[in-house]
Computed example of a mutant assay.
Amino acid sequence: MTDDPVISLRSATKRFRGATGIHTAVHDLTLDVRPGEFLAVVGPTGCGKSTTLSLVSGLEPASAGEVLVRGAPVRGIPAGVGYMFQQDAILPWRSVLDNVAAGPRWRGAAKAEARERARGWVRRVGLGGFEGYYPHQLSGGMRKRVALAQTLVNEPEMLLMDEPFSALDVQTRGLMQDELLRLWAGTGAAVIFVTHDLEEAISLADRVIVMTTAPATVKASFDIPLSRPRNVEEVRLTAAFLDIYREVWDSLREEVARSRAQGTGQGVDHAA
């Protein structure tokens, strides 16, 4: 990884006008993400984690401060960004193959080329043989694999992920976490991964940032010195993981308590 960030937020603030006045979602938010870095973002419910992704993706403009991608101000959706939402964006009337091929087609690829690229990614996410299936014929985990292939087929330089596995059962979620690490390894893509699950954040990331109760800003940043490649189930049983978990949780629990006291959210998943 180089020292030059691919994503930078400089004192970024986002305000929304609501029925009761102006709501500040994030305030004076400053952070950098380097090429190839996997950054996980945790914080209390409603603190502005998803808003941060919206600023980076260009879906929302900053009210103040700067949001930079490759050193240039974000004025729209930057090239090279892949976004994986909590709810998948699979089109129900298209097959698995055509859902994955849609991205390359929208970017100008010929139909045959787009389908060939899609076929390769369908196999890579473990759905070989299901190319002709439709979304209603797939399990929740299989749909997430399609959504992952949809995102990665375009070879994004930046991958924004907003609680992508939160709706899955525990076993399927673990499998998808391992699958994500396997597919991301060696791509050089920078990842910002928003989650309420502190175990998930530490298992996946190179670095975890803790955000404050809304209006959110960065409270603390923790490097995760766990070697790669990782098996997420195995790494969670190690003494090193538990030590890191306790350190991050000591920072995070103050914000969770403050959020609950203010009635703004339910905090985060805490299982260790």
Rank of each mutant, 00 (worst) to 15 (best):
W93G: 01
R94N: 00
R94W: 00
R94I: 00
R94Q: 08
S95E: 11
S95H: 07
L97K: 01
D98H: 05
N99V: 08
N99D: 04
N99E: 04
N99H: 08
V100S: 01
V100A: 02
V100W: 06
A101S: 02
A101H: 06
A101C: 03
A102C: 05
G103A: 15
G103I: 05
P104H: 08
P104E: 06
R107W: 09
R107D: 07
G108D: 01
G108H: 07
A109C: 11
A109L: 14
A110E: 12
K111F: 03
K111G: 01
K111Q: 11
A112E: 13
A112D: 09
A112S: 10
A112P: 00
E113Q: 13
E113G: 11
E113N: 08
E113L: 10
A114F: 05
A114L: 06
A114H: 13
E116C: 03
E116T: 08
E116I: 00
E116H: 12
R117M: 15
R117Q: 15
R117V: 12
R119C: 04
G120W: 00
G120V: 06
V122I: 12
V122L: 11
R123T: 10
R124V: 05
R124C: 09
V125G: 14
V125Y: 10
G126K: 06
G128F: 07
G128I: 03
G128E: 15
F130H: 15
G132R: 11
G132Q: 13
G132H: 13
G132P: 14
Y134G: 14
Y134A: 15
Y134D: 10
P135S: 01
H136Y: 14
Q137L: 08
S139N: 06
S139Y: 00
G140N: 10
G141E: 07
M142S: 07
M142R: 03
M142Q: 14
R143H: 09
R143M: 13
R143Y: 05
R143A: 09
K144M: 09
K144Y: 03
K144V: 04
R145F: 09
R145G: 05
R145Q: 08
V146R: 03
A147Q: 04
A147M: 04
L148V: 01
L148C: 08
